[in-house]
């Protein structure tokens, strides 16, 4: 792929096929940690970190373990296992060697161990038959798209604290309504990149 193709690929993954708002993966932390901006940014960083790591390791597992052994149908369980172990490993290593980063991301890492967005990106990488570099770029771009949606959403939700909200709409209900509008807004990017 040329540089232009990669740019298109990245824009498509961030805006048009946003993992959260177009594919609707990872909605649980989207609603759960989006009440405050600082937790939303912390979560975003952790997602970027884990998604890239998971994308790479699962690609390696797929093509160096599952395919040679001819057991591709065990993909899901193998990926979950590997991702969970990876995140735990990263957490342990980080706690010792990068305590500052650990304090910033630490509490979010276990939360996204079995996040469907992470697993979803890993499986898309395989289904779309991306090579290793494509996998790296797509994982990073998807994670950025996730972060963008999460931070935008947290910015909106913080403002809810300042207004008078009828009880029926408080909390998750207004969150889902806003998530719907945000998804509609993102669907406006659909014409930007053809083909998907």
């Amino acid at each position: 792929m040329s540089f232009g193709d990669y740019m298109l690929f990245i824009v498509s993954a961030i805006l048009v096929n946003n993992i959260l708002l177009a594919k609707f993966l990872g909605n649980c932390p989207f609603l759960g940690v989006s009440k405050r901006m600082d937790t939303a940014t912390g979560m975003s960083m952790a997602v970027i970190f884990v998604m890239v790591m998971a994308g790479m390791i699962t690609w390696l597992v797929q093509y160096y373990i599952l395919v040679p052994l001819n057991i591709e149908y065990l993909q899901t369980i193998a990926f979950i296992l590997v991702i969970a172990a990876l995140v735990q490993l990263v957490e342990i290593v980080m706690a010792k060697s990068l305590p500052a980063l650990y304090r910033a991301l630490g509490i979010f890492l276990p939360l996204i161990t079995t996040n469907c967005a992470v697993l979803g990106v890993a499986i898309i990488n395989i289904n779309e038959e991306y090579d290793f570099v494509d996998t790296l770029v797509f994982s990073l771009a998807s994670a950025l798209g996730y972060s963008l949606a999460l931070i935008l959403f947290a910015g909106i939700r913080e403002r809810f604290m300042l207004i008078k909200m009828p009880k029926a709409f408080q909390g998750t209900s207004i969150g889902l309504v806003v998530a719907g509008f945000l998804a509609l807004a993102f669907s406006g990017f659909a014409g930007l990149v053809g083909g998907h």
Partner: peptide, 25 residues
């Protein structure tokens, strides 16, 4: 064979975690 393969993968992950836990305690 499949069971062994997944089991081996799990064992490898567990070993990795165990070593990491010891080294990076």
């Amino acid at each position: 064979f499949e069971a062994l393969a997944i089991g081996g993968l799990g064992l490898a992950s567990a070993l990795g975690l165990g070593v990491a836990a010891k080294v990076f305690a």
